[in-house]
Simulated scan of single mutants.
Amino acid sequence: MTATPTDTVRDFYTKLAAADAPGALGLMDPDIEWITMWHYKVEGRGPGAVAEGLFKPLMAEWTSFSLVPIEFVTEGDTVVSLGNFTGVHGVTGKTAEARYAHVWTVKGGKITRFRQFIDTLAIADARRR
């Protein structure tokens, strides 16, 4: 049975929660476009660019973090996940709790595009000393 776009996105969050970065990156199309609202910027395209521009700096800045999807809305190849980011900032020790909306495009079982919308004020407050 072929995975639906929602199955693929759920699998991504499951792999992140299990600290399986290679598995999460493996769900991405080689030409994935990754768009964020944070100070992390993914330059270029592809899983390697996501690892360098997002995963590595995110893991370096936050001593712990989780993304917990609460709801999924799917229309064709597009999946919107609504959920909560919780993280402990490595320098300030403050906890951030931020609501997010992630918009995913999945084609042929691979994530081809990601767009992030998040409560950036909650993140900024945790980063502020």
Rank of each mutant, 00 (worst) to 15 (best):
D77H: 07
T112R: 12
A51K: 12
E71I: 06
H39I: 05
K107P: 07
T2V: 04
L82A: 05
M28E: 10
T4A: 08
D7L: 05
D77L: 10
H102V: 01
W62V: 01
F117T: 02
G109P: 01
L25Y: 13
D29I: 00
G90A: 14
G87R: 10
G53V: 09
K56H: 06
K107G: 04
Y40F: 14
R45Q: 11
R99D: 12
I123T: 07
V80I: 09
S66P: 07
G23Y: 00
L16R: 01
T105I: 03
T2R: 14
R10I: 05
V80L: 11
E97Y: 03
T112V: 13
E75W: 00
R129L: 14
E71Y: 07
L54D: 07
T36L: 15
F117Y: 12
S64W: 12
Y100V: 02
V50T: 03
F117N: 10
L16M: 14
A21S: 02
G23I: 10
A124L: 15
T36M: 14
F55R: 00
V73Q: 09
G108K: 08
G109Q: 05
A98T: 13
G76V: 03
V68W: 07
T4M: 14
G26F: 13
V103C: 06
R113V: 08
G23F: 11
M37T: 06
T6G: 08
S81I: 11
T14E: 12
K94T: 10
T74K: 13
M28Y: 02
I118E: 09
V42R: 11
A18F: 08
V79M: 06
I70T: 02
E52G: 02
M37V: 15
R45H: 15
E33L: 15
F114G: 00
R115H: 08
G93C: 01
E75A: 03
I70Y: 12
T78D: 00
E75L: 06
A96Q: 02
I118A: 03
A98P: 06
G23D: 02
P5S: 10
A98Y: 01
I118F: 01
M1G: 13
W34F: 15
T92M: 13
V73C: 12
L82Q: 04
M1Q: 13
V50W: 09
A18G: 13
W62D: 04
V50Y: 03
T36G: 05
T36P: 01
T2G: 03
